[in-house]
Design a protein around this nucleic acid. Structure first.
Lengths: 117, 117
DNA sequence: TAAACTGTTCGATCAACTACGAACAGAACC
DNA sequence: GGTTCTGTTCGTAGTTGATCGAACAGTTTA
């Protein structure tokens, strides 16, 4: 059919606005090396540019899918289905309004070399 | 003997300056309900005023001791032995210099009612 | 000296998190 | 049609973290 807006493996992703995210949840979401990579790479990309599989992380897709779910629940990202792939955007403004400075802190920190080891 | 400056159960506590604390460690330290209470109560008290046992937290002393160790390793608090008790202070300025805005975020957030349940 | 108090450490338990492979489902491509 | 690509879900395994009670070691008080 015409333009595709459907899903990949299942229904549309459930989102949570940063406004409804508890501080503890936001901190926990960011206290993980893999998710930090995702957030930083996302911040360096344009909205809706990156699909889930396009990130350079040392985990397989099952774990990756889980991490994206956590970021979604923490109000950090928004996802949209585009054909077979699911594209992402960082909720910069909304998240920063809810937790002023937190995202800046994460993004200004130079990534620690070597994730595992 | 004269003035006591010794320990409670063991040697002097090991500290870590916020400068040497990784962002991930700071976030993880703050992503816990008990430790959030400790930090907030500490912020509302004067330096060296509060002993470890003087906090209103729903855990026993073994767990409490562990939480203080985590806060110490995260550069969030400083401890000093004063006779039988160990007194604390929040490293406001140093921590804020290392992670600008993070502590403010934690302290401006209204404590979520009901820690467990 | 003995008892009470404060806090640490040990060992065990239990819950939560992270990870993987396999199976699945829709989209795109041949 | 079938194959490949993308991502989710499931079941499971390993790791980490929080918690407790008990034992311990100083300090203080009686």
């Amino acid at each position: 059919m015409g333009t595709a807006e459907t899903a990949a493996g299942r229904g549309a992703p459930e989102h949570r606005h940063p406004r409804e995210v508890p501080l503890q949840g936001a901190l926990a979401a960011l206290a993980d090396p893999v998710r930090l990579i995702l957030v930083r790479e996302l911040a360096a990309s344009r909205d809706w540019e990156r699909s889930c599989g396009s990130f350079d992380v040392p985990v397989r897709k099952a774990a990756l899918s889980h991490h994206f779910a956590v970021l979604r629940e923490a109000g950090l990202i928004e996802q949209r289905d585009s054909g077979a792939r699911r594209v992402n955007r960082l909720r910069r403004a909304e998240f920063d309004a809810r937790f002023p400075g937190l995202l800046d802190l994460v993004l200004s920190e130079k990534p620690d070399r070597s994730i595992a080891e």
